[in-house]
Design a protein around this nucleic acid. Structure first.
Lengths: 234, 234
DNA sequence: GCAAAAGTGTTATCACTACACCCATGG
DNA sequence: CCATGGGTGTAGTGATAACACTTTTGC
């Protein structure tokens, strides 16, 4: 077969917006870009899509390369294609956002990328249109987490309800009533109470919970109204 | 500046999933593909992104070329990039879905694309991965329309509540109680009752309504819960 | 006068909000 | 024994769902 004639080909990259939660703040994993243009500036982790590679594969490969992690929650955010977004050469970027348990993240031996976690609110200036991507990813996270049990992806397997509440409060930059909050999350039936307590943050200790994985898979796409009035979101 | 070396460039296309509503069924606008490969087969309307063009621009241009319409509701659905999706040459496609008032659609003079409306449930086999795109677009439409006042984009400026209900029933393939339905849509405050009635479909006639454009813009992104239990959606 | 579609009201249930006190424990 | 964070219950309010009859008018 021949090729389509007279059409422009362009580079296609993937960029990953990687969120983490340290128990207090929502964080973003950024790297120092290792090549020109904009070498040495803060950037999202990204890479070019290879000839034999699916977009999801490229995104997963890119994420694994940076974090060493596999099987992470990841979702296509959208594509960014302004003609001048990369001044070097026209490059389309397909952005993915990922939610990882920050404790699982191990700095790779080489620390090849000079990666760092930044509080989302206090991130440095980013190259190209990466700030737009981050903003859109944050909006999407808020949007989806209001309706779907998404934020569990940011927590370790065992977590307490107060930890979960702090996470929601960080995502929505708002405070919630703890009685209503715990009633609501427990009413989903997704949580299984453990026998052990977390004893580091309080004297009394808070019970650990785990996700009921069967129910989690079943209800993941259901409308659960996790946050009833998240404000006007996109 | 030089270019990124040793990376593959690829074609980037946009494809449009165009929905319409004829008063009875949800419909899809398809064309007969005019060039190889798969010439003569049913396809979504699409086109290649031009060197100086934004993705949104490319999508809007493509839509206008087919329908003659401008200022139509359009949203990026996502990108499809399996390496073999176009057998001729690797092509990434950024899919957009559009909602148009089917009455505004005028077949262009030339009828260059041999376009036809198909009931969504009864669409022909499509080329490449276009069926996946359509399926994803339908899921997205259901998802969004359950929460946002989106389906109005499919109706003419003046419409009746029974018409609106038939539309919702078509989208969700479900029946709704008309008392609860009208109460719910009226309670949003988005509708302005007109003096005239639509008299074609019933003897008594049904009052026309128009959208309150100010409130529509303001509430478009709010969570309105148009359909309270839309089932398990993505 | 009757068939066909439009329009409307009530009640029971459920979910959400606001709010305050007791519990367990380490120091 | 007290400071700290964990855990729970209730009452009022608003939204939802289920349900049936009356209105209009072209034929």
């Amino acid at each position: 077969m021949t090729r389509y004639s007279r059409q422009t080909r362009m580079l296609v990259a993937v960029d990953c917006i990687i969120f983490g939660f340290d128990g207090q703040d929502l964080k973003l994993l950024l790297i120092k870009r290792g090549f020109e243009p904009e070498k040495g500036k803060w950037s999202l982790m990204g890479g070019f899509v290879q000839p034999d590679e699916d977009l999801e594969q490229a995104a997963a490969r890119t994420l694994t390369k940076l974090t060493g992690l596999d099987g992470v929650y990841m979702e296509q955010l959208g594509s960014f294609g302004h003609p001048g977004r990369d001044p070097m050469e026209r490059t389309l970027s397909v952005a993915y956002f990922a939610l990882i348990d920050i404790n699982q993240y191990k700095q790779q031996i080489t620390d090849e990328y000079k990666a760092e976690w930044f509080p989302l609110k206090d991130a440095p200036k980013l190259i190209f249109d990466h700030a737009d991507m981050v903003e859109e990813a944050q909006a999407r996270l808020r949007y989806k987490a209001a309706i779907h049990p998404l934020l569990f992806e940011l927590l370790p397997t065992r977590f307490t309800i107060p930890q979960l509440q702090i996470l929601f409060e960080a995502v929505y930059d708002a405070g919630f009533d703890k009685r209503n909050f715990s009633r609501k999350v427990l009413s989903t039936g997704l949580l299984v109470k453990q026998k052990e307590k977390e004893r580091a943050t309080s004297k009394r200790g808070a019970f650990y919970y785990k996700l009921d994985k069967r129910k989690y898979s079943a209800k993941f796409h259901a409308f659960l109204n996790f946050v009833s009035d998240p404000g006007n979101l996109k």
